[in-house]
Write a protein that binds this DNA or RNA. Structure first.
Lengths: 107, 107
DNA sequence: TTGTTCGTCAACCAAATGGTTGAATATGCA
DNA sequence: TGCATATTCAACCATTTGGTTGACGAACAA
């Protein structure tokens, strides 16, 4: 679980990757089209997409010679839940809260 | 803003730093006490605390020779809101969450 | 004063990160 | 077939990251 938080937060720490996620929120896109607005090589964007895929934040499916990228919003859930446990619930018993979270994430 | 998301997510990407935040959720702590459970030097933990401070996730206040570390839960809000904007994932089970809250606040 | 504790600083190191370029692979099309 | 397009691979590079150690200054205690 904490390994997945590692990769999720690390993936989200880069502004290019967050921009990619925002783009994919609107629609699925091919790798070339994802890369178009960025001032870096296609290979660099391709690497970012690999990182997002390994973090589970997007999925990629090849149809013909085009690889389509699709956002996977559920992957953000664990990290989002983890973060919310700070801002709002800091006065609570953390052991109980973590048991609650585990039950939530399992379900 | 996106710079602050950079530093926030980068700070959260390290398991040692997340563990520190969890510890500080329970109580304010001196640097030496924060470092105690970790199998690394005090200097290394001190660096992690600098990163958390720069991200605004904690604050540090020196009283005498002891520097106290305090969590700043609001700092996570921007990042949390950003993640929520992807809000296509299922909400937490709010009924279960409210039961949890009641039990916590009663106990 | 002398010594001890608290914490940071400086220099260093290995590994990871984010980028480049050019070649390679795979698919589609005339 | 032959060529263009879509994407990744491989090698390389500079910078950042996360750790180490030893020296240091500041605050307490004897």
């Amino acid at each position: 679980m904490s390994q997945s938080l590692d990769t999720t937060f690390a993936a989200l720490a880069d502004p290019t990757r967050r921009a990619i996620l925002s783009m994919l929120l609107e629609d699925d896109m091919a790798v070339t089209d994802v890369a178009e607005p960025f001032e870096m090589s296609l290979a660099a964007v391709s690497k970012h997409l690999v990182i997002l895929t390994k973090a589970g934040l997007i999925s990629q499916e090849k149809r013909g010679r085009v690889k389509w990228c699709k956002i996977e919003p559920n992957a953000m859930k664990e990290a989002s839940v983890w973060m919310q446990s700070f801002g709002q619930f800091e006065e609570l018993d953390m052991d109980a809260f973590e048991r609650f979270l585990e039950a939530e994430l399992a379900g």
